[in-house]
Design a binder for these strands. Structure first.
Lengths: 143, 143
DNA sequence: ATGAAAATATAGCCGCTGCTATAGTTTCTG
DNA sequence: CAGAAACTATAGCAGCGGCTATATTTTCAT
């Protein structure tokens, strides 16, 4: 018989889930940003990605390599970066969730600038269930 | 003159802030957990910490060493772990924020179990400003 | 009090995400 | 079209946070 100390849903599981979400967070940010760059300027160059992410250029290069390994992007040396179908689909989902989090935060009274800052970290940990709840809350409130 | 492409508050700054928050997240989790263990059982042993965090024992040992380096905890070999004043103060703040996030999520319609899961990752990215907004929202709604 | 069990520490491995320095390509310009 | 500038890739370093395997210490029972 296990102990089941504090929080109801197994504490270790909660932490494990948070760790897992975190490992995907960076990929989600990159995919969203690459999608934005392509939409804005027609292409996503490593230098632009690095600049917008606020990291050194080799860091961006390395992460793009990981995106390739994960099947989210393609790229040829000295050329731009492109999203695969999976990458584009992820970008779309991530962008929608990002905006929803910002809207929810503002709806409960968080100033816009703060909402944009905090959303950057929060979004990656919002589950489908929570996202649906946010959507319903916003709809009821202003719909 | 900088470009200022997409999001209003400098995008790179947002990412930098999220990375910084993330680097503190693990320490916050450990400090909160150690405080809980001491409150519940009178002491925090490495084995218990590892078990509750869902990691292997050497991982917990290593992180406790980091807590010591950061001035948040003390420990002597083969003995329990204790919080410094700074560690205890952090634990209190973290616990309060954690509960506030769960309450806010439930207040906007997220099921309790989901709220507890998602809060584990979300809490670390909630700023003081956002926390205050949550508090005001809850007060107005049910106070 | 001694030997077994439990707890902790140490060593050494891995991948990720940063970084700087430098080499190699492409692109632009005079 | 050649040299400079800009961009990208590669090499190599560091810290973090996982892991397993193993050594050490403490605790518990006989």
């Amino acid at each position: 018989m296990p102990e089941e100390h504090a929080g109801s849903p197994n504490e270790a599981d909660r932490f494990a889930r948070a760790r897992e979400k975190q490992s995907l967070a960076l990929l989600e940010d990159y995919v969203e940003l690459i999608g934005d760059l392509i939409a804005e300027t027609g292409e996503a160059r490593v230098a632009d990605i690095a600049n917008r992410m606020g990291v050194a250029q080799p860091t961006a290069t390395k992460t793009v390599a990981r995106l390739r390994r994960e099947g989210l992007a393609t790229s040829r040396p000295y050329r731009g970066v492109f999203l695969t179908d999976a990458g584009a689909a992820l970008a779309t989902r991530v962008r929608a969730r990002h905006h929803m989090v910002i809207e929810l935060l503002m709806a409960v009274g968080v100033p816009a600038a703060t909402a944009e800052f905090d959303a950057e970290g929060i979004e990656h940990h919002v589950s489908e269930t929570t996202l649906a709840a946010f959507e319903a809350f916003l709809k009821k409130r202003q719909g």
